[in-house]
Amino acid sequence: MPVRAARAAPEFVPRVRHPLERWLRTDRLPHIWCSGCGLGTALSAFLYALDELGWDPDTVAVVSGIGCAGRVAGYLRLDTYHTTHGRAIPFATGLKLAKPDLHVIVFSGDGDLFAIGGNHFIHAARRNMDIAVICVNNFNYGMTGGQLGPTTPVGARTTTSPFGNFEHPFNLVHLAASAGATYVARCTTLDGRRLQKALVEALSHKGFTFVEILAPCPTNYGRRNRLGEGLDELRYYREHMVIKHGADPKEADIAPGKPFLVGKFVDIQKPTYLELYQAKAREIGGEG
């Protein structure tokens, strides 16, 4: 019988530096998110994407709405704006138009972006505003105690659907594509470098881009739907996700117990609001 080497004893090292530290307000860590929540992983993937892009941090601004995902802004050592519920996208629109050289990223949740903020999402996509929208979708309102949201599957139990949800959820990928987003991808927090790649593509793509990140919410959604711990939700992703690039967004519905698509759905080019505006402004005498 092979003898396993004795467990290596660790050294104790002071003044450590996490590889992402330069992007983080480390004096605010650890963050507020629950054990097993996917937000921290999504945030970390976003920071790896920024690292890969090599952008000067002073050219990046992040705007969040309200909710658990809305707290992302507060942990970033960047110009960050934690705005009102649902209004991150119009705030980001103003910021981008006032300072076109800035990379403006909206990082928020499914309830914030698609219920109270749904109108802003479709219109920013329609006008091809040059911002990237990252949506962490945990299928419910986590911070307020686990109420049903615009992505909650039919039948799912939440604190405001105690008998099961009677509403049909949005297919966010299809919604974004239909509204005019020029880049649309979906990943889960289990996707590691695949998620980083999608974020790098979305951030560097000109125009309105959208990445949906499926994430566990064990405290609220997972618990009420008997999905187990965050770990169990990730196992569920591993067993049910089907990686497919270029799929029809209409096929990207998510239903409990059924396979679901992840991958890149849309990657097109079209003129942005700013490009059209600035071209006309130059023509008529202003600088735009």
């Binding site: 660790p10 050294e11 104790f12 002071p14 003044r15 450590v16 996490h18 530290e21 480390t26 004096d27």
Partner: peptide
Amino acid sequence: MSELQERVAKRWKVPKGHIYVL
């Protein structure tokens, strides 16, 4: 203040580098 760099991590030697756990 809980600045990350002031904290002490555990570090294990692995073949091509180290693993840190805070």
